[in-house]
């Protein structure tokens, strides 16, 4: 691919298989194909939403980009540097540029550390600042996420879920990274708190010109946050496009099922009535052909045999479905 200055991260045919051991000798019997050949480009200053149900591999992609898990195959290129074969020192430098905010603020903050130590930790690892300089930096950062100086000397359990998530955000932005993986940052929070965290994230994105990979299963939040959307099912991207493409012209049958399944907080909203069929198959043993064919209303013989590839519909809208021409209007 051509290196483009607009591109921050490029993911090429990324695969991540987790071995499943069983039997007396714990032999590897099969692999869970969490991510099974994904190509994705994340542009500078955009919010790319990665949508799907649990077990579809969206979280694994986030973690592989950050090199928290080694990919089985494929590569991740961050600002032109290949992460998969970077040396330890290079990786350390690259880590300063990317951070993560986890889903559950109750488990992502060390319970025995004071807030000042949690938020100051990245500075301790990556800089040689004095303790007073770190304290000042922590104070500034906490203020930028809407917390106060006195909060520095408390333990995480003294905070509400929303405040904890602010602490986690502060930790993520203190090194002024370029890219943040947001792994369902609001799904453990109440609605009125969620709104404030989402607004905060949008403000910070403007202020620090950040790029987000927003991992979620809530399409309403995607609509509010994202520029582009990638829909995943069982380790594969099934549909990719600009937010408006995905919401006004959902093409893959799975995207349509997903949109119909999300409860909309508006009793007057009229939407397609599709009741999803069946359950998500075992990712260690995904269906042959198109992985969605077991639950798909449009399934034909070809779907059971041939795996569809991402095809361009128009502009930046891609779909992996044999029958998209009939569905797309």
């Amino acid at each position: 691919m051509v290196t483009n200055n607009n591109v921050l991260i490029e993911i090429n045919s990324l695969k991540k298989y987790f071995p499943v051991r069983s039997g007396i000798f714990l032999r590897v019997k099969k692999y869970v194909r969490a991510v099974d050949g994904v190509d994705l480009v994340i542009k500078r200053n955009e919010t790319l939403a990665l949508v799907g149900e649990s077990g579809c591999g969206k979280t694994t992609i986030g973690r592989t980009i950050l090199h928290l898990t080694e990919p089985t195959d494929g590569e991740v290129v961050f600002e032109g540097k290949n992460l998969t074969n970077a040396s330890k020192e290079e990786l350390m430098q690259l880590r300063k540029g990317m951070q993560i905010v986890f889903q559950n603020p109750y488990t992502s903050l060390h319970p025995r550390k004071l807030v000042k130590d949690i938020v100051g930790e990245p500075l301790k690892i990556h800089t040689n600042l004095s303790s007073v300089e770190i304290l000042n930096k922590v104070k500034e950062t906490l203020e930028s996420v809407g917390l106060r100086e006195e909060h520095m000397y408390r333990y995480p359990h003294e905070f509400s879920g929303g405040q904890r998530q602010r602490i986690a955000v502060a930790r993520a932005i203190i090194l002024k990274p370029k890219f943040i993986v947001l792994d369902e940052p609001t799904s453990a929070l109440d609605v009125s708190v969620q709104a404030r965290i989402l607004n905060l994230l949008n403000e910070l994105k403007e202020e620090l010109s950040l790029t987000y990979l927003f991992i979620t299963h809530d399409l309403a939040v995607v609509d509010y946050m994202a520029d582009r959307v990638a829909v995943m099912y069982l380790g594969k991207i099934v549909e990719l496009g600009k937010k408006d493409d995905i919401f006004s012209k959902p093409t893959h049958p799975y995207t349509r099922v997903l949109e119909a399944a999300i409860p909309i907080p508006d009793p007057f909203f009229k939407k397609e009535k599709i009741l999803p069929k069946g359950e998500v198959p075992d990712p260690a043993n995904p269906p042959k052909g198109c992985r969605f064919h077991t639950r798909c209303d449009y399934s034909i013989d070809k779907c059971e045999k041939v795996e569809p590839v991402l095809e361009n519909i128009e502009g930046e809208h891609y779909v992996a479905c044999h029958r998209w021409r009939e569905i797309y209007k």
Partner: peptide, 26 residues
């Protein structure tokens, strides 16, 4: 396997640092 240890690794902390200042106290 807690997320705060994963966060620590995402920051680039060494195993030594993670063990002695984060896992051991727990």
């Amino acid at each position: 396997n807690m997320e705060y240890i994963e966060a620590e690794r995402a920051m680039g902390a060494s195993n030594f640092r993670i063990i002695f200042s984060h896992v051991l106290p727990m």
